[in-house]
């Protein structure tokens, strides 16, 4: 509970730390420093493990990773696996997000139902959803459904909880104002409640975007013949450490892109919220 509740406040830690540093260093030196750090780490990765005699099957070198990536592209149909994981993540994210938002608004509008259902929501929220994956395979077989359902479940809850929170802390005076203007309930929902909950909904979606990749990966690890998660378990079976590293890297890329997409939509929608650091940066 607390984990997801905390995230409802609009703290975007990575971005904020980044921006604060940018201000502190007064300029564009921060991205350059990040890049330099990446280069440094890659060089260390390439040369340090062999120096200390760490074998390739424990920590492959950067050049091994690169060679393996090319091999996978040519021989293992990497693109097909990548597209499968990416599209399933997005599909699961969209479905889970939609269901979570609809459920959040519905429960927010029906407080009695919320009270009746809240212990079960809490229980389901705490239950490790990825642990359901083997169960779904038993039920639905080795196809796309198990991983998709796991992902929908994983994405569903943070969004539900965030939306519900917004509906709970809604400013009653705003609703009363709209009521005093003789506004219909539909209009009150569309013109007041929905925009009011937007920061929370988007915070939920931001968490959901990263969780979606986890859901799909677990589904693919447990049982599947396609996707980057499958490549990880395949690589593990062959003691092909480079393959595992590469697949993890690509999964991270998918997650980062999804996170970035949600964040940029968020910044566009929530432009009306003052941001302290942002205000300092653009005088």
């Amino acid at each position: 509970m607390s984990n997801e509740a905390d995230t409802t406040t609009r703290t975007r830690l990575p971005l904020r730390v980044f921006s604060a540093r940018a201000v502190w260093q007064s300029g564009t030196s921060a991205p350059a420093a990040s890049l330099a750090l990446a280069v440094l780490v890659l060089i260390a990765w390439q040369y340090l493990p062999p120096m200390f005699g760490v074998p390739k099957y424990i920590i492959p070198r950067v050049s091994d990773l690169w060679n393996e990536m090319i091999r996978m592209w040519l021989q293992e149909n990497l693109l097909r696996h990548f597209i499968s994981t990416a599209s399933m993540s997005i599909l699961g994210f969209v479905l889970g997000g939609l269901l979570g938002a609809v459920a959040g608004y519905a429960l927010g509008l029906l407080p009695t139902w919320e009270k009746v259902l809240s212990p079960y929501i809490l229980a389901l929220q705490i239950a490790p959803k990825v642990a359901f994956a083997p169960l779904f395979i038993l039920w639905f077989g080795y196809n796309a459904w198990p991983k998709l359902i796991v992902t929908v479940l994983v994405v569903f809850f943070p969004i539900l909880v965030n939306v519900l929170q917004a509906m709970r802390i809604m400013d009653r005076d705003l609703i009363n104002l709209a009521r005093a203007y003789n506004m219909s309930k539909t209009k009150i929902f569309l013109k007041v409640m929905l925009p009011y909950s937007m920061p929370n909904l988007l915070a939920g979606l931001r968490i959901g975007a990263t969780l979606a990749v986890i859901g799909i990966t677990v589904g693919e690890l447990v049982g599947g013949e396609i996707g980057l998660g499958y490549l990880i378990s395949f690589g593990q079976g062959q003691a092909n450490t480079s393959m595992v590293f590469d697949a993890i890297g690509l999964l991270t890329v998918i997650g980062v892109i999804m996170y970035w997409a949600v964040t940029s939509v968020e910044n566009r929608i929530l432009h009306y919220l003052p941001r302290a650091v942002g205000a300092q940066r653009s005088p």
């Binding site: 005076d173 925009p195 009306y272």
Partner: peptide, 30 residues
């Protein structure tokens, strides 16, 4: 509720996602 009463509180109750103009239009949208 009827549209012949206008009330105003200590809190401005402006909708933060609307411009001033659109906030003024809010009551008319009913």
């Amino acid at each position: 509720p009827n549209s012949s009463v206008g009330f105003m509180l200590q809190k401005d109750l402006l909708l933060p996602w609307r411009t001033v103009l659109h906030n003024v239009e809010f009551g008319l949208e009913a």
